[in-house]
């Protein structure tokens, strides 16, 4: 197995999942992942592969994210259309859609650093790797993560509560 294949097999799934969660679109995630691997192939030496790949992917996302506020609004509209068009059982589809929308809003409301730390940790990166990618001290990763997790849970619960309230209003 070549280095390229090994790199791809080892990290591709995790990288795409990370990017999908970050971006909200699988195709976009695949493209960024592809670009990341292309850059990895051009790189002569990589000391820590996982850290390097996630750092490059994070930077690619960041570069694009600056230009992309308008696109993301458009994305939300299109994503909603897509979800409406899905052919699942209506209850399951609705529940999943709402759940994902709440999660997306909660994640998007986090500070960028908190969001990145959370997503990177979810993909199994250790604290030194996260610190390297985010450019922070290793000792502050735990604090960053604890804040991010608490905030995410609070924001998500708030979204769910708002939704429940709307549902009650609609029912009455």
């Amino acid at each position: 197995m070549s280095d390229t294949e090994r790199l791809f097999l080892t990290y591709h799934a995790a990288l795409v999942r990370y990017l999908t969660r970050r971006l909200g679109d699988r195709d976009w995630a695949e493209e960024i992942a592809q670009e990341t691997f292309v850059r990895a192939l051009r790189q002569e030496t990589i000391v820590n592969e996982r850290s390097w790949l996630f750092a490059v992917a994070t930077n690619l996302v960041r570069d694009e994210a600056r230009k992309d506020i308008r696109r993301r609004r458009h994305l939300e509209l299109l994503a909603a259309e897509q979800r409406e068009a899905q052919v699942e059982g209506p209850d399951v589809a609705m529940e999943r859609t709402l759940d994902a929308a709440d999660a997306r809003r909660a994640l998007d409301a986090l500070a960028e650093r908190d969001r990145q730390a959370l997503l990177l940790r979810e993909e199994g990166l250790d604290y030194p790797e996260i610190a390297e990618i985010l450019g922070i001290a290793v000792g502050s990763v735990g604090t960053t993560l604890s804040r991010a997790r608490r905030r995410l849970a609070e924001l998500y619960e708030a979204q769910v509560a708002v939704r429940a309230q709307r549902g009650n209003h609609a029912a009455s």
């Binding site: 999942r17 679109d25 699988r26 195709d27 976009w28 992309d68 299109l78 259309e81 959370l118």
Partner: peptide, 19 residues
């Protein structure tokens, strides 16, 4: 937080406008 983030894995494809 893990559970919330896992909800983001079910996303449609091909919905991104051009970047």
């Amino acid at each position: 937080s893990s559970r919330i983030l896992s909800a983001l894995d079910q996303v449609p494809t091909g919905v991104i406008p051009p970047r």
